[in-house]
Simulated scan of single mutants.
Amino acid sequence: MSDLRALDGPMSEAHWRAYGELLAAVHAVPVTDELERLLPGGGDAYPSIVAATRDMAGRLRDQADSGDPLVAELAAVWAANADRVSTLLRGVERLAVDRSGPAVVCHGDPHLGNLLLGADGQVWLIDWDDAVLAPPECDLMFVLGGVLAFAPITAEQQQAVLAGYGRTDVDPLRLAWFLAVRALDDLSDWTRQALDLDVEPADRDRAARIVRGLVSPVGLVTLADAAVRDLDRRL
């Protein structure tokens, strides 16, 4: 097994196709009674994510004038994106009852940082701590939704992944829902780390950079917001 992460690439077309084949193989694993007992349902933690997001929004409003430049900056970021965050919160809660689908084994976090590359086009997924039983969109959003702002996946790369994955009928509601949950989770959690005074300054700065990326034009908050609003127009 290689130790070269896909983030450090470069990824060939063969790697992208193998990525899709690997996701398809994961989703094809038979769901046994034992797996049903061991694996949580994907997205089941959304109520706590919604609560954490609302708590963070209130915390930043209360601390906006604390005198800490980083707190002031993050408070401004959240204020500027308050409409998007509200849209995601409403979407997650409103669509929760309709997001169920065929439960398959999902890696839960198959972004390029958890993908290792082999010299011959092979790929491996690592870090299975977030494995869940969920609809395929729980994993496919990392390809179709664009979770990492600093590593966007092009249309050609998406096509290569889907060619390897095989036939799939992606449900736009489930895709938008999983994107929105992930966006809220990342935004609140990375903001929490950036505000933590017990964390090294360099780590706080890194967390703040990730928050900025999340709300950038190619960031997950932006993409999830667009997906939820597009879904609203269709419904």
Score class of each variant (00 low, 15 high):
86 S>A: 15
179 L>E: 15
229 R>F: 03
51 A>G: 09
91 G>P: 01
128 W>S: 00
214 L>C: 07
45 A>T: 11
228 V>W: 05
183 A>I: 02
140 L>N: 11
212 R>Y: 14
194 A>D: 10
38 L>C: 09
121 G>R: 08
50 V>K: 06
158 Q>H: 09
4 L>A: 06
216 S>Y: 10
79 A>H: 07
81 N>M: 05
86 S>D: 15
204 R>P: 03
231 L>T: 01
70 L>V: 09
26 V>T: 05
173 L>V: 13
177 W>F: 07
199 V>R: 13
93 E>D: 14
78 W>A: 03
22 L>M: 08
221 V>G: 02
56 M>R: 11
62 D>V: 12
163 A>D: 15
205 D>N: 00
192 R>Q: 14
109 D>T: 02
199 V>F: 12
167 R>E: 15
78 W>D: 03
170 V>W: 07
110 P>E: 02
105 V>C: 07
227 A>D: 07
40 P>V: 04
197 L>V: 14
142 F>I: 00
176 A>I: 02
214 L>P: 03
114 N>E: 08
162 L>R: 05
213 G>S: 02
168 T>L: 12
20 G>N: 07
70 L>E: 12
201 P>Q: 14
128 W>T: 04
2 S>A: 13
209 R>M: 15
152 P>M: 10
225 D>A: 05
100 S>H: 11
213 G>H: 04
163 A>Y: 12
86 S>Y: 08
70 L>W: 00
41 G>H: 11
75 A>V: 01
201 P>S: 10
21 E>Y: 00
217 P>Y: 12
186 D>F: 10
188 S>T: 01
18 A>S: 13
8 D>P: 01
127 D>Q: 06
145 G>P: 06
41 G>K: 00
17 R>S: 10
209 R>E: 15
191 T>M: 07
166 G>Y: 12
98 D>M: 14
56 M>Y: 03
131 A>K: 04
4 L>M: 09
14 A>Q: 10
71 V>E: 15
107 H>K: 02
54 R>H: 07
190 W>V: 03
214 L>G: 06
15 H>T: 04
76 A>C: 02
37 R>Q: 11
113 G>R: 02
206 R>T: 13
7 L>R: 12
44 D>N: 00
189 D>M: 03
224 A>S: 08
189 D>A: 12
120 D>Y: 06
115 L>M: 14
23 L>T: 03
13 E>G: 03
53 T>I: 05
84 R>E: 11
229 R>I: 05
122 Q>H: 14
228 V>I: 15
98 D>A: 13
86 S>H: 13
146 G>E: 08
5 R>P: 08
106 C>E: 09
119 A>S: 15
74 L>H: 01
200 E>L: 10
229 R>W: 00
82 A>F: 10
147 V>M: 14
110 P>K: 03
93 E>I: 03
78 W>N: 01
199 V>Q: 11
216 S>L: 06
210 I>W: 15
224 A>I: 01
168 T>D: 13
11 M>V: 06
191 T>P: 09
232 D>Q: 12
14 A>L: 11
144 L>A: 08
234 R>C: 10
126 I>L: 14
